[in-house]
Amino acid sequence: MMRVLILGFDALEYELVVKWKLKQLMQKRYGAYEAVKSPKYGKPHTPSAWTTIITGRLPEEHGIDDWWTYGKILDWIRTKPPLVWIKNKRKILWKLGIRPRLHSRKEIKVKTIFDLTPRSIALFIPGYNEPVEPHMKLNEAIKKGINEYIKTIWEVHRWRVNTFLEKLNNDWDLFMVWFDIADLLGHVCMVKCRKELWKAYLDLARLVGIVKKKTPEDTLIIILSDHGMKPMPDGTGDHSEYGFWSINKDLEWFNPKKAVDFYSLIEKALKM
């Protein structure tokens, strides 16, 4: 059985990895694939895209298409008249003491890659087991301005890195971890402050180097993004229609074209 480590780098942009010549991120083989579109947002969106990657199913089948949920009934009522016409529903519900929670494993309707082996670790995976605290922290930070937001993005990232490196020492056959720094900074800095984004990419490359030293050589390391990041006319960054992948081994059969392909490729690697 081959050990598989998946480094999920949200919104890691293929064009930037190549342009900035980040060999550590490109590994032995790399490419781009067609990202999955969220039915709700009409473009690739983090929770539905990662859930597609870990299940091999489209959002309509796996059932995750947003960050937050109020539970099945309230989610359904909110989309129907007259509630659908009311703006700022989230704020009103918050004042009434009704808080949303992040989607989790129990709402995913199909099996995931983590069911393929008993020794699997999933860390911070959107739609599956992402903790709520970083969202809250970032939500508060942006109220104080962009600089505070960027500072907090780095703080959250360092916390994620430390937690991950600690857990990497555990016993596992399949380990998947998710980092959001390329996405969060991509939205802010894709046009106006690219140096900050480059620093983040370099930091992710450094993390790969550290990970390679800490894992046995026969581990298959898959670097994966759910979508890329494109510059927008309004000066922000937005999700592009393709994602990035790379592997540290010369496996010719590992050649994903679509987000749904990853499930079977990971399954095959685990059986090798």
């Binding site: 947002y41 969106h45 947003d66 960050w67 937050w68 989230r90 704020k91 918050w94 969202h135 970032l138 939500n139 942006i142 969060l184 939205h187 927008m232 309004d234 922000t236 960054g237 937005d238 999700h239």
Partner: peptide, 10 residues
């Protein structure tokens, strides 16, 4: 606005 539209912040 971008982050709000993507459901990242309130």
């Amino acid at each position: 606005e971008r982050l709000r539209a993507l459901g990242y912040i309130d």
